[in-house]
Structures are given as C-alpha cells and as structure tokens.
Computed example of a mutant assay.
Amino acid sequence: MIRLFRFVGIVEGITTVALFFVAMPLKYWFAMPGLVPPVGMIHGAAFVVYLLAMVVCLWGRGFTAWEWTRTTFAAFFPLGTFLNDPMLRRKQLTEPALLA
C-alpha cells in the first residue's frame, strides 16, 4: 500500500510542478491564462486523492506522529511530496511482504 501512496504522491507533485512552473508563469508572464483552470482542477483533485490515500494506504503501517505530520505537510509545499518520497521508500522497503 505504501507503493500505491508513493505513486499518488508523485502524481500530486507533478501536478504541483505543472501548475506553479508552467501554467502560472504562462498566465502572469505571457498573458496566457488558458492552462490555469484545467491544471488547477487536476492539481486540486490530486491533492484530495493524496490526503485520502494517505489515510487509506498508511493507516496501521507503523508511522510515527512525526512521519504523519511530515507526510501531511508535504502536500502543502511545492516539491514537498518529492522530498518526502525517500522516507516513504525506506518505510516501504522495511514493510513486511504480504503473503498471498
């Protein structure tokens, strides 16, 4: 489940980059606001999915209060999900494999 959450986090991070470093500069520097509404909507949906996936995928996986706080705050800062991913990867690698 941590692997799924990591994927959601990367998608959320990519939508943040697209919004802040592509759509918004086009709007404010080149007077081309056309990308902001669709990219903003996609980013908003990815943000909500990130928060929901955090609870569904990480609950009961042995995360400390600090790791929960860090993972939550990562969604609120540009590039935060990318910076948080190495910690999630370490947690994923130490998670016991599920038996089929």
Rank of each mutant, 00 (worst) to 15 (best):
A75F: 05
R89I: 12
L58W: 04
L83R: 14
P86R: 02
V22Q: 10
G13I: 05
E12S: 09
P37G: 05
I2Y: 03
P96R: 14
G60I: 09
V56N: 03
P78G: 10
G40A: 02
A18C: 09
T94Q: 12
T69S: 10
T94M: 06
Y28T: 03
V17W: 07
Y50K: 11
G34E: 08
A97R: 14
A100E: 14
L26C: 08
A45Q: 10
F5H: 10
F77S: 13
L19H: 03
A45W: 14
Q92S: 14
L26S: 02
L99R: 15
V55A: 12
F30W: 11
L98S: 15
E12N: 06
T69Q: 06
T71K: 05
R90A: 12
L83Y: 14
M24W: 00
V56C: 10
A53S: 12
G62Y: 05
L35I: 14
H43Y: 06
C57A: 10
M32Q: 12
W59R: 15
V49E: 00
E95I: 10
A74P: 00
G34A: 13
W59V: 13
F77M: 15
P96Q: 06
G40T: 01
P25Q: 05
R70A: 14
T16H: 08
R90Q: 11
T94I: 08
V39C: 05
V49F: 03
I2F: 04
T69N: 06
T64M: 00
P96A: 12
P33S: 01
Y28C: 06
I42R: 00
A97H: 13
E95A: 13
R3M: 09
T72P: 00
Q92G: 11
I2N: 07
I2E: 05
F7Y: 10
C57E: 01
M32L: 14
G9F: 01
F76K: 04
Y28P: 01
G60V: 13
F5I: 11
M1N: 12
L93P: 04
A65T: 08
L93K: 15
I2W: 03
L19G: 00
V17R: 01
A45M: 15
L51H: 05
K27E: 01
T64K: 01
A31G: 10
F73Y: 09
N84M: 13
P33M: 04
P38A: 12
F76N: 04
F76H: 06
F30E: 11
L83A: 15
V39M: 11
I2C: 12
A45S: 13
W29Q: 08
A100C: 15
L52A: 14
E67L: 06
L35E: 09
G62Q: 00
A46V: 09
P37E: 09
W68L: 03
R6Q: 11
K91M: 09
F5M: 08
R3D: 15
L19Y: 03
A100M: 15
K27H: 02
I2L: 12
R61T: 07
F73S: 05
W59A: 12
I2P: 10
N84T: 12
